[in-house]
Write a protein that binds this DNA or RNA. Sequence first.
DNA 1: CTTGGAGTGTCAACAAGGCTGACGTATCCT
DNA 2: AGGATACGTCAGCCTTGTTGACACTCCAAG
Lengths: 169, 169
Amino acid sequence: MDQSTSPQGGQALLFLTDEQLRKGIEAMFFAYRGFTADPDRILSEWGYGRAHHRAVHFIHRSPGTTVNNLLSILGVTKQSLNRVLRTLVADGLVESRVGQIDKRERHLYLTDTGAELERALSDAQRDRMRAAYRAAGPEAVAGFRQVLEAMMDEDMRRHYEALREKGKT
Amino acid sequence: MDQSTSPQGGQALLFLTDEQLRKGIEAMFFAYRGFTADPDRILSEWGYGRAHHRAVHFIHRSPGTTVNNLLSILGVTKQSLNRVLRTLVADGLVESRVGQIDKRERHLYLTDTGAELERALSDAQRDRMRAAYRAAGPEAVAGFRQVLEAMMDEDMRRHYEALREKGKT
DNA sequence: CTTGGAGTGTCAACAAGGCTGACGTATCCT
DNA sequence: AGGATACGTCAGCCTTGTTGACACTCCAAG
């Protein structure tokens, strides 16, 4: 395709050999496995799966978020998300409050139990992330984040960058 | 848990605030989605899923690999892998040859068609990886790889590092 | 006030791709 | 000869994704 695709073509310029890129691809694959291993263990103890983890994580991050908002972040159908939310509400981990301004919307909050699960999950995941960060060092971390951000789709980057936007209950 | 878990505790020392770590976690989540988006599109055209991608990728990387070896790399059950391999063999993308030294083993190879799919998939994935690498720059890439390697489980790092070991057909 | 549409919940049916358990067969090794 | 190994396969179950269809509530525009 371009010069960097040929075996040694762009190496002097940009070191992007197919072999380098393949290593990066496999690194993503193997690392993502490690990344999810600990939460998966905890989730199975609670009888949940990754879908529940994602929901709990983003509800914790943005308390009061609406179902629709969650849908666009998670990128799944409402039927799929609803199944997960239903069990979380039924099990008392998530509270779904009817919106005050717009009563069609449901605003989602973690209960104490929900917060407990979230804490167990994020503690485990942070521990591994922290260990990796420490092993790699500050400069490596900066590079890590730069590459990951460059790998995201546009809309995902929007969600990624959005931290605080709603402060009302 | 330790000093870096408290809001500002370890920042001066290691900048590892919960917020920083959370950002890293979400970056992994969103980036992995981007990472798999292009292959997923191609796979659905061929009527396959990610499981087929993984099999095809590692057979391409290590032609003649055995089923057992593939199992340990992919970390799935033989029943699960077998279902995927069966369709790939039936569709003529993968060839399964009885071992010459040990006739119990089956050695796996891509056919021309299989290589064609692999090429389409890895081209797409490399394109995105290359774009991300270029956008982030060489130093960032080094850091990216360092952090990912530190995030892997032990056995995964072994597979990740193993490039060539078998040269015989 | 009526009506269209947005936001949400839910039922049903289906598929991919994990899992466990059990069994059979061929082959190798001791 | 007998146990271990490599592989395939059948059967059943679970999670999590999909479509399609339908109902309900409410806001806003006409």
